[in-house]
């Protein structure tokens, strides 16, 4: 996909010659002021289509983060429901014990080690690094999400559950229609914080050689021997991704705020 984009851009450029034009302008300005800045940036981005590396990096980072977020939320909600229901009814003791142990172990060990264990041992026979990274961060994130949602469950007044049960709804109906929507709403801000952390945290996958956005600067540095430009560019790209994500999450949060006293208006 990205290779196709690169050849398309090069094809267009072979008619228009924009790349050469930019190089000329950049060299002129630099030599006029006695700089090397613009040339460095040129070498870190346009030369040899290096922009496509960043693009690939962003795509991989987002792939890992999104898949991990889905796994994390799914497993996390499940874990927190087990822990919460056990606390309220005392009927799920073995399951709750497993859930609590899982959360303790995952939260108590560095994600780098979890990644290496999964990458080099458990999934050693797989060659899809991005999927392994997504699974690792999904597992890691699920423990944090579980704690966040559990806090959300506990912030819902017990009277809500009692009111549901007193009307004759069963445990599951009460959970699904009354408790879970309120718990999710209450845990949205910390949950979104977790998503944003996840996007940046996935840079750790570079540790086992997966080509995410955090790994790209090193790759370019080893060709151009200029260290700052690729780092700054990658940092800006992370920032942009996180800012877009924040905007999207704000919109979602606002949708959920309609039951607030002021209808979610500021």
């Amino acid at each position: 996909m990205i290779k196709l984009l690169v050849s398309l851009v090069n094809l267009i450029d072979s008619y228009l010659g924009i790349k050469a034009l930019i190089l000329n302008v950049v060299t002129e300005i630099d030599s006029f002021f006695g700089w090397r800045v613009l040339k460095s940036i040129y070498r870190a981005t346009i030369e040899q289509d290096r922009w496509s590396l960043y693009l690939q990096g962003i795509v991989n980072t987002l792939l890992i983060a999104v898949v991990a977020a889905f796994i994390g939320v799914f497993v996390g909600v499940l874990l927190s429901m087990i822990v919460f229901l056990n606390k309220k009814t005392g009927k799920l003791k073995p399951l709750a014990w497993i859930a609590n142990t899982y959360i303790t172990i995952i939260r108590g060990t560095p994600v780098v080690l979890q990644l290496m264990i999964l990458y080099f041992v458990v999934f050693a026979s797989w060659d899809n690094g991005i999927l392994i990274g997504a699974i690792t961060f999904g597992i890691n994130s699920s423990a944090y999400v579980a704690e966040i949602i559990r806090a959300g469950f506990e912030s819902v007044d017990d009277g809500q559950r009692e009111a549901g049960r007193s009307l004759g709804l069963n445990t599951w109906q009460t959970m699904f229609h009354i408790i879970i929507p309120q718990a999710l709403k209450n845990s949205l801000p910390p949950l979104f914080n977790e998503f944003i952390t996840l996007v940046k945290e996935t840079a750790i996958v570079g540790y086992v050689g997966i080509m995410d956005l955090g790994k790209i600067p090193g790759l370019i540095q080893s060709r151009t021997f200029e260290y700052l430009p690729p780092l700054i560019i990658a940092a800006i790209l992370y920032l942009v991704v996180v800012m877009i994500l924040t905007l999207i999450l704000r919109v979602i949060e606002k949708k959920f705020a309609k039951s607030d006293r002021n209808g979610g208006k500021k």
Binding site: E162, S166, P181
Partner: peptide, 21 residues
């Protein structure tokens, strides 16, 4: 118990209306 609770209304001190509805 759910079947029987359907025939017993309960009103609480703290109202306990469903906040999300």
């Amino acid at each position: 118990i759910n079947v029987h609770r359907q025939n017993m209304g309960m009103v609480f001190q703290q109202f306990n209306l469903f906040n999300n509805k």
